[in-house]
Amino acid sequence: MLAVSRMPLTIFAAASLAACATPSPYRELSCSSTSAPVLQTIDDDRKSTTLSVLTYNIEGLGFPARSGRAIYLRKIAQRLAELRTEGRAPDVVLFQEMFSGAAKRAIADSGYPAIASGPHRTSAPGNSNKEPLPGRSHIKRGEIGIHLSGSGLAVASRYPITQVRKQAYGRRSCAGLDCLANKGIMLAQISIPGVPTPIDIYDTHMNSRGASGAPAERNLEAHDRQAQEASQFINNTHDDAFPLIFGGDFNMRHSEPRWEGFSRYQDLRLVHRICADPQSGCDVRMSWDGDEPWMDTQDLQFFWNGDAVSIRPVRVEAMFDGGPSGPSLSDHDGFLVTYELSWKDDIKDLAISSTCFAGSQPDA
């Protein structure tokens, strides 16, 4: 969420624009500098490897929206850097709420060799709905017609990020205080040595509910429009030959109407739903209550097979939740999914060498 409480917008604007002085983290990794993962042979004619993906909202708002966050953000960076040194860090991290300068520095200091960021403050929206949202806009809840920060999205990877695409949500697809951030969706395509195709990884942060300050009908419609635009973006940027992972802060906890709207546009497979089935073979290492554990969290991951490479979740666990994985350092826990990637051994020649190039240039 992006919550500003009752602070004067002029003060928040000054703080937000000051954060813009800190550039978004950006780091390129060449394919020749990448170590290959362990490959295994399964069923005689198939190979496999694993890919671990963490989605984590780091609560990276600066003063006066939040105070005292810098020390916790530094601890997040230190913990990830330590795990990398020990060889136990997630392969890929999908960050949300990277707004403040301290948040941007924390992601850079995590030590990942490849980093890309989502839509920035002035990124143009994609095709947006021209109809006004229900009700009336109000300046006191942040609907002022301009963005004071970027999307807050970033993807960090141990493997090369070979393509980056990004799109802000439409100008009439936000409600309340969320409109102060240029929320959107990004694609970070990664290439893993030995895997025949790249993997398309998407990250997003969608409109909040009560924290937005906007009436329920208004913030629900904004969320629905963002879900539709995210689906269109994925359709326009994803190659069906590649496996797909879509994660982030979807802001759908305890909201049947939001789930219903989102599901109209997405038929991707939900990790929580698959792993909640005892027959799935997925190792659940976190506490889930009830028959629909996906309704109890904002932080989700979806996936889909590629034509050549299959993908399935084999383990789910929490990070930064106050347990053995680390202290709680944000108002969200991290959600870590380990996937198995598998493919027929005789398709190894389908590797697309042209995908292993330097990433896109950083945003201004």
Score class of each variant (00 low, 15 high):
R285Y: 04
R269G: 01
H120N: 09
A181Q: 08
P293H: 02
Q40V: 13
G326F: 11
W259V: 04
P243R: 07
S310A: 15
P278L: 10
G170Q: 03
R171Y: 05
R218G: 02
L180T: 14
C275L: 06
I58M: 15
R74T: 14
Q167I: 09
I144H: 02
R69E: 14
C282K: 05
T355Q: 12
N182S: 08
A230E: 04
E59C: 13
E97Y: 13
L336K: 01
L133H: 01
H138N: 15
L329S: 04
I76A: 01
G176N: 00
P196D: 00
R121G: 04
S330W: 10
I76H: 05
T41R: 15
G210P: 00
P313S: 01
A13V: 00
A15E: 04
T197Y: 03
L61H: 03
Q228D: 05
R46D: 01
D239M: 08
A364M: 08
L153W: 06
S151T: 08
K166W: 02
G152T: 07
M286W: 01
V155K: 02
F63P: 13
G194H: 11
S330A: 14
F99H: 14
S52C: 09
S360V: 07
S354E: 14
T122R: 12
A124V: 12
L153D: 00
V164T: 15
A3T: 10
A318H: 12
N182K: 05
T162E: 04
R66D: 05
I139S: 08
P313D: 03
I352F: 11
P134L: 12
G281I: 02
P134F: 11
Q189H: 12
R165W: 00
N57K: 09
Y265V: 05
G334L: 10
P193T: 11
I11R: 09
Y112D: 03
I115N: 00
S30N: 06
S30K: 11
S263C: 05
G118E: 02
A102I: 10
C179D: 01
S32V: 09
I274A: 05
D291V: 09
A114Q: 06
Y72V: 06
F12T: 02
I201D: 04
H138T: 01
S255H: 06
R253F: 00
P278T: 08
R264S: 06
P160W: 08
M252H: 03
P193G: 07
A124L: 15
F63V: 13
V92E: 03
C356G: 02
I274F: 07
D296P: 02
S35G: 07
A21T: 12
N305P: 04
Q226H: 07
V337N: 01
G248R: 08
L187W: 11
L220D: 15
F335M: 11
R218M: 13
D240N: 11
A70G: 06
K183W: 09
S208V: 10
R121A: 07
G247N: 02
M252G: 04
S231N: 06
G213Y: 06
L336D: 02
E292Q: 14
G150V: 09
G359Y: 04
I71C: 03
K47F: 09
P327Y: 08
Q232I: 13
Q301V: 14
F99L: 13
Q167A: 09
N219F: 13
A89V: 15
V38L: 10
N207M: 06
E221F: 04
N182C: 10
Y265Q: 07
D333P: 03
G87T: 06
C179A: 10
Q226D: 05
E131C: 00
A102E: 15
A3W: 12
